[in-house]
Amino acid sequence: MGRGLGTSDDEKWRLNLSRVAIALAMASSLGAWGCDSEKRTVDATAPVTAPTGRSDPRLPAYADNKFQQSQGGLYFTWYGCGQCHSQSAQRPQNFSTANFRYGGDIPFLYQSIADGRAGGMPAYKDRVPAQQIWQMASYVKSLPKTNQYLRRREDLDQKGQPTGTTWSGAVR
C-alpha cells in the first residue's frame, strides 16, 4: 500500500480549500452529517501492532469505515477465511448474527484472527501484516449488520479471486 492510498498534507490543504468554499455556499442546510464512514485515509497511521484495548486511539478509523471493511473483505477472501466462515457455515463459525463467542469488537476479533482460537481456528499473525488483520477485524465486525443478500452479491463479484491456496482462473 505504502504511500499509495494516502492523502498528503499538502493535498489535504488544497482539497480543503475547495471544500471550504463550496461547503460555505451549500452545506449549511445539511447540518452535521457525519461522513467518517466514507473516508479513505490510511497509511500515515497504518497500524503495525495489535489494538491495545477498547480505548485504542486507532479504533475509530477502522470501526465503521466502509473502505477498511471492504479491504478486509478482500483479504478475507484471499486468505481463504470463507472456507470455514462462509454464509452457510454452522453457528459459531457463521458471522451473520452478532453472537461472537469471544466478543464482537475489533480488539477481540483481532485477537481471534491473530492468535487463533480453540476448536480449529488457526493463528494468522505470522502470515498476515497487522494492518490487514485490523481490516479483516473491521470486516468481520460489519458482517452481522450486512444484509445477507448483499454479502452474497459481494462474494459473487469476488468469485474470480484466489482463495487460500486455490485459484481457478478468471471467471468465464
Partner: peptide, 29 residues
C-alpha cells in the same frame, strides 16, 4: 458537489464500469 464538500467524491472516472463500481469494489456511497 455537496458530497465533495463533505469529503466523499466519486473517484471512478466519468464512466464507472462494474465490477469496479459494483458492491464488492466500490464501498460506501
Amino acid at each position: 458537489w455537496i458530497p465533495h464538500a463533505l469529503g466523499f467524491t466519486p473517484d471512478l472516472g466519468w464512466f464507472e464500469y462494474p465490477p469496479l463500481s459494483g458492491p464488492a469494489y466500490a464501498p460506501g456511497h
